[in-house]
Design a protein around this nucleic acid. Structure first.
Length: 502
DNA sequence: CCCAGCG
């Protein structure tokens, strides 16, 4: 099979869905033709008519033989499931077989080979980069698997579009957390090593070194990466001009545009740029997840966008073996962490433990360190500089076990993380008996980066926990194996063996 | 709830 828009799976052949459509996987009934409440749905429907199917040739078989033999490439065919691409308008794109197909400068390509150690575009790169880099520079909504290299896509997209000779911001990337902004800039610096392109990191400063923005020089770097509040601060202080920004990226875009995320901030920034920018600004939305509510909203934010997405069943991360462990009470959960996770976790790499609140992250950390278990914890109430050091220590491998909140649920990339623990299951804050499926997927995705093996343990305690876990399994059409006895060394050992980690 | 930010 050499065509991503056609497939042996009949449901994949139909490229009729738009981002505003109902999820049609589960239900047979189509959206009614009767007048809808005026939520913009009708606009979406009419835009839908313009969308036409696209054939992108991606030779999957060839990718496999070529890439898997080389040990260096980090992007070696991390996902095998199909990606569906839908183009808007009549531009014909073909997948980039080589980076040379993308009209990039020599300096930039050198960075890809030498610094990034890339050989050929990964699947998501091959499909998305032509859409980003070839005129008319259409907007793009791109969903791709965790650990498949979304960051490299949009970073390369930004670098490919800026003119190093113009000394003002031409590309902007907005991230939900300080940690992600730093991480993306790290990638950018590496990739741009042989170019003259510079970047500016717009995140809150260390409180100790606070200098009022008014006293700082204006930003002249080509690319700005940051968090919403700080970017807003720089623009309103007139130290960051948006007039020449021609590409705007939202990392973890569904969260940036969801009602309980950063919706207002994001929209304000888009508006600000569109108001000031001389040329039309290209908007890119990247995430591993776009739930139906967000899809509806997203299709109104972008304009006539190209789309790349995968079916939700294909997102469930088969490389990360997921388990549930029934624990009689909270004390037992801590016991599992102490006796099993610390016991085995260290052998198989690094571990991230997720809790529901900042406070529970802090208390769990205190409890464990008091008893001599070596770990660190990071959450949003820490001082900025403390966050940075704890993250740095973990990325350097100095610490093996990191306790955190959903601060790190999304995007955090550390290849040595093979074990994810849901100390608390992720739930919707406004409806705590409902799982937060997106957050679940993102958390699990912290293990198994770039096709590596991994395991995840969900610690369940109450009846509610059981019900939530069942819903998660049903939603992803997943059967999560049970670690039968929470006290049993052998059960955990067996689980890790089955996951391919021991 | 989690982020983000208020100088």
């Amino acid at each position: 099979m050499s065509d991503v828009s056609s497939s042996s799976d009949p449901t994949l052949d139909v490229v009729k869905k738009s981002w505003g459509d109902e999820e049609s996987d589960d239900e047979v009934t189509s959206a009614p033709d009767a007048p809808e409440p005026s939520d913009g749905r009708d606009i979406v429907q009419s835009e839908l008519k313009k969308i036409e199917s696209l054939s992108i040739s991606v030779d999957k078989g060839k990718d496999k033989e070529d890439d898997n033999d080389h040990s260096e490439g980090l992007l070696d065919n991390p996902e095998d499931s199909d990606i569906k691409a839908v183009t808007a308008g009549d531009t014909i794109y073909s997948a980039a077989e080589y980076f040379e197909d993308l009209n990039l400068t020599k300096d930039l390509i050198k960075g890809l080979y030498v610094e990034m150690r890339f050989q050929r575009p990964s699947k998501i790169q091959a499909i998305s980069l032509p859409m980003i880099l070839i005129p008319p520079y259409k907007d793009l909504v791109a969903q791709a698997h965790n650990g498949s290299g979304k960051t490299t896509c949009f970073v390369l997209g930004m670098l490919g579009r800026v003119d190093p000779k113009i000394k003002s911001p031409q590309a902007m990337c907005i991230c939900p957390t300080r940690e992600l902004a730093i991480q993306s800039q790290d990638v950018l610096i590496k990739m741009a090593k042989y170019t003259d392109i510079t970047s500016f990191l717009a995140i809150p400063a260390d409180s100790a070194y606070y200098v009022p923005i008014a006293k700082l020089p204006p930003v002249t770097d080509h690319v700005v990466i940051g968090t919403p509040g700080t970017i807003k601060k720089w623009t309103t202080a007139r130290k960051l001009s948006t007039g020449e920004i021609k590409i705007l990226v939202f990392d973890e875009a569904d969260h940036m545009l969801s009602e309980d995320g950063f919706r207002d901030d994001s929209l304000r920034i888009i508006k600000e740029i569109q108001k000031n920018s001389g040329v039309r600004c290209q908007v890119l939305l990247f995430s591993a997840t776009f739930n139906d509510n967000v899809k509806t909203f997203v299709s109104r934010v972008v304009n006539d966008a190209n789309q790349i997405f995968v079916k939700k069943e294909d997102l469930k991360l088969e490389k990360v073996k997921q388990y549930k462990v029934y624990c009689p009470d909270e004390v037992a959960k801590i016991g599992v962490i102490k006796d099993k996770i610390f016991e085995f976790g260290q052998k198989v790499g690094q571990t991230i433990i997720f809790t529901h609140t900042r406070d529970s992250a802090r208390t769990l950390h205190q409890t464990l360190t008091k008893d001599g278990y070596e770990c660190t914890a990071v959450q949003g109430s820490l001082k900025q500089e403390d966050r940075d050091t704890i993250i740095k220590e973990f990325k350097n491998g100095v610490t093996k076990v990191l306790i955190t909140t959903d601060l790190l649920a999304r995007g955090f990339d550390q290849s040595q993380v093979n074990l994810v623990i849901n100390f608390d299951l992720p739930v919707k804050h406004y409806f705590p008996s409902e799982p937060d499926y997106e957050v679940y997927l993102h958390r699990i995705g912290r293990a198994g980066r770039f096709g590596r093996k991994g395991a995840a343990f969900n610690l369940l305690c109450t009846d509610r926990d059981r019900a939530i876990m069942e819903k998660i399994e049903r939603h992803f059409d997943l059967s999560v194996s049970e670690v039968v006895n929470w006290r049993s060394e052998e059960d955990f050992e067996k689980a890790l063996q089955d996951a391919g980690l021991l």
